[in-house]
Design a protein around this nucleic acid. Structure first.
Lengths: 301, 301
DNA sequence: TTTCCTTACGCCTATCGTAAGCATA
DNA sequence: TATGCTTACGATAGGCGTAAGGAAA
């Protein structure tokens, strides 16, 4: 097969229609140029030029091949440029796994920051629960995970810290209070996260209860926060949910801080398999620089 | 700039993710393959692979470059194939200049024969008068000319020979005759071709008159046959036109052979700049093989 | 005679293959 | 210890440059 150098020789001769001038343009002498063209012609199996000792002309097949050669050379340069931009993290694509809950506040903010700070980078978004995200991170199916701790040793960035709020029906006697005493949970049916799939929030809720010295009644496990809120609204029980739930709270449910509770904060982290992907590095650089924990990430005072 | 050989090395390693197996596939040993990849990486300015002494993985930029490299290699092979087909005359395009008169019989027949006999060849058709065709042939703007003689020394193929017929209004007293005596032209107004632009037919008409010993009256010069026929229909005068005019004769005009006239035949030729274009050769081969002068090309008996 | 492409020939460089080096599981 | 990529080194082949050849205006 021919080589790109031969194509460069061919294009030069085809454009100059003069071997000596073409050779000068290529910074070489003319005999080796003649040989390169001959070898190219032999490789291709047809003549590219009609040499009449006084003039050089392209054959019809040569004219066709000239178009192709120019295309190939242009594409070759473009290929290097394109990949170089990816290597520099200036362009490329990342796939982000995110939990349903994060899609209301953290995810839109993250997408907006990346769009503004690294406009060449395309983000593919895939909603999946925390457990799926770990699998996907290990398999390389996603480049970033937006999920709850722990990070299992992987590098991570903490995006949000939010207090757990008590979710109770609007019709509940204490719904009008500014803040609610944890004691009301004593013996009450509680809806909380499952210990495996939603381990982090499950443990966090238990910590809150333990620290408050409260023992709830029957406990129901539901993994998605919006389902929990729906059950609360239906009067099935009370629940402790992260503050972000305020964004998708049904109208018949209200969220209230627990009075006197030590600030147990639910964290949302961004994690990734490892360093080395420049596109990823570019996105992380933007986030480290631009992301400031919003005021709403701290509990109401 | 990198070379296609390096791309082949890169694609092999990227597909095998294993230098030794890739080297085997490329019929070389593994150390030079490593060097080629290193040189390619240095050329590009970014690493293509992450080597961890136990596994080889593509970097994100490497994955992008793999796509580009595959495209380039595929295009390189395609380029040679495409141009080779042109060199063999199997495909390509030709531009044909043709006169308005030829577009009724000779041109459609020619196009049909080429379509059937050389299906890969595309024909571009450009109507132009004979004089324009000569300029275009010299400039390379058309590859073939469908025009009246002479060929001015260029190679040519005679496509048709047709008698000159007398065009006269249907209302003319002699319109009912099977053939007309040339003597009727004596002193009559005559519409014929201009001596410069339509030189060939002009001279041919004069020859017919001279051989018949007839001197017409006032002579009007009009270059396009369909215009001549329109003037005949309007009673402006009589005319001698090639038999092909039968195809686009107005209903109020009839064409009749001249009785006793020696067979002065108007020829239509196909001419081209020179040999050497395989696409042209392929078309000419088809025409030489398939073209038979049709019966309608000879004068009525 | 001049121009311009091709052929011939010697040198040099770049690539290949073999062998040794080095890190990891 | 085995596997697998890299480094080192000598041999070879392919490409470049100089010089001579040959055809056409």
């Amino acid at each position: 097969m021919f080589e790109l150098g031969q194509l460069r020789c061919f294009v030069a001769v085809a454009e100059e229609l003069h071997f000596r001038r073409a050779a000068a343009r290529l910074n070489m002498t003319q005999p080796p140029l003649s040989r390169q063209i001959q070898m190219l012609e032999q490789e291709l199996g047809f003549p590219l030029f009609l040499r009449s000792s006084r003039a050089v002309r392209l054959t019809p097949a040569g004219a066709v091949f000239l178009d192709q050669a120019r295309n190939l050379l242009r594409m070759a340069e473009g290929a290097a440029q394109e990949a170089l931009r990816v290597a520099r993290g200036e362009t490329g694509s990342l796939t982000i796994g995110f939990t349903a809950a994060s899609s209301y506040a953290a995810l839109p903010r993250l997408v907006a920051l990346v769009r503004a700070g690294a406009p060449g980078i395309e983000l593919n978004l895939r909603e999946m629960v925390t457990g799926e995200q770990w699998t996907a991170l290990r398999a390389g199916a996603i480049d970033l995970g937006l999920l709850r701790p722990p990070a299992h040793g992987l590098p991570f960035l903490r995006l949000e810290r939010e207090a757990l709020l008590l979710a109770l029906p609007r019709a509940h006697p204490l719904a009008g209070e500014e803040a609610v005493d944890p004691a009301v949970l004593e013996g009450q049916p509680l809806i909380t996260y499952p210990p495996l799939d939603g381990r982090y929030l499950h443990d966090l809720v238990l910590s809150v209860l333990r620290l408050s010295g409260v023992a709830p009644g029957r406990v129901q496990h539901v993994s998605q926060t919006h389902s929990i809120l729906a059950l609360v609204g239906a009067g099935i029980g009370l629940a402790l949910v992260p503050q972000a739930a305020e964004r998708f709270r049904p109208v018949d449910v209200v969220l209230r801080p627990l009075r006197g509770t030590p600030p147990l904060l639910a964290e949302l982290i961004l994690t990734w398999p490892e360093a080395g992907n420049p596109v990823l590095e570019a996105v992380l650089a933007v986030l480290r620089r631009e992301w400031a924990e919003p005021a709403r990430g701290t509990p109401r005072t």
